[in-house]
Write a protein that binds this DNA or RNA. Sequence first.
DNA 1: TTTAATTCGGATAAAATTGTCCTTTATTAT
DNA 2: ATAATAAAGGACAATTTTATCCGAATTAAA
Lengths: 144, 144
Amino acid sequence: MFSKACEYGIRAAVYIALQSLDGRRVSVNEIAEEIDSPLAFTAKILQQLSKSKVIHSVKGPTGGFEIERTDMDHVKLSKIVHAIDGDEIFVGCGLGLKECNAQKPCPLHDKFVDIRNNLKNMLEQTSLYELATGLEVGLTYLRR
Amino acid sequence: MFSKACEYGIRAAVYIALQSLDGRRVSVNEIAEEIDSPLAFTAKILQQLSKSKVIHSVKGPTGGFEIERTDMDHVKLSKIVHAIDGDEIFVGCGLGLKECNAQKPCPLHDKFVDIRNNLKNMLEQTSLYELATGLEVGLTYLRR
DNA sequence: TTTAATTCGGATAAAATTGTCCTTTATTAT
DNA sequence: ATAATAAAGGACAATTTTATCCGAATTAAA
């Protein structure tokens, strides 16, 4: 569904949000450790998320990644997926046709649009804050 | 969502079904031409589909691929996706965790399960016959 | 002002996916 | 029987994705 990069990106963002709730800024090392992802690859993904303003980065000692409390509400998963995987999952044809729309649909078009709208709505409605609080309360997990 | 191989596989299977409705057996060459897919790669995918009994192949002159009328109803998209992409899309965690279930869920688990059940149901309910007849009537397209 | 901790950025490597080519095997028609 | 046609299968190549490594830039603390 999502690329590995995107999976790591979402997990990282949720972890950063969780720690930011406690006012803690976290390093790539800690993030990769806590979400069980490859360190250097995770660093690349965090750069992408930083450039696309999903997270905020601070260089130097005591630096790291953080997300401001107000941003946690505004940053939805759709923004992360878009930043890392692009819009193929939001607009592409399920059977890979270059052009596929209601006028000239592939055989799966209508059914696929339904599924995808569900996915799209879910991603657009789910904020980092919501996911981070689930973690905080101990209801969900980011590894294993 | 699906791999390229799977996209080609579904398109090929629908085309074979369509032609089989007319009693025509089709060659890889014709299939790749009609669904606009890379010839040799498509041949590989057809081998997979043949082995997993999604389609039937006949060697030699006048040979090619076909699907029997009764099979078109029984073969659902889920079978094709399973044969080519495996079961990751049906059972895997949305955030890539190795273990993720109701007991120890990832932050996205519940929402992801909903989406995936929609997808799963759609794939399990959609037969090749249904897709082929849409094509036959000229309502849908397999290329461009 | 130096040192050390941290992200950033570029180059490279490994693995997976996508794609091609060529030989073998089966089978039909001549 | 032989030739021709088509799928099957193996080896290989290209591309994309995943992943690593290292030096540069930034900045806080000593």
